[in-house]
């Protein structure tokens, strides 16, 4: 019983490390995305429409990355026996 609990604890701690890493990555992607929105808005208000479409596409890719990492976090949580 105790060994089982200890194993679970070790697995959970490993999972926490992976989740922390994923969260840091999400944070970096989010900071880039916030910068991208402000730069695109500034450009749009200045009358330049050229960067607007690439800005939206890149923002979508960044969001897909964040969503993928979120799914990874929930997956790790399930695999390492975290709370449902």
């Amino acid at each position: 019983m105790d060994n089982e609990r200890e194993d679970r604890h070790v697995t959970q701690n490993r999972g926490l490390g992976a989740i922390d890493g994923a969260m840091s990555l999400i944070l970096v992607l989010l900071i880039v995305q916030i910068w991208l929105v402000s730069a695109t808005l500034n450009s749009y208000l200045a009358g330049f429409d050229d960067p607007v479409l690439p800005g939206a596409i890149i923002s979508g890719i960044l969001f897909a990355g964040c969503f993928g990492l979120y799914r990874f976090v929930t997956g790790v949580e399930k695999r390492s026996g975290g709370p449902r």
Binding site: V37, V52, A56, L62, F63
Partner: peptide, 17 residues
């Protein structure tokens, strides 16, 4: 929360587009 914020940023970019 971070993922939803990312979605909001994407929505913002789409709104500008």
């Amino acid at each position: 929360f971070l993922t939803l914020t990312s979605l909001a940023m994407f929505a913002g970019n789409f709104w500008i587009l």
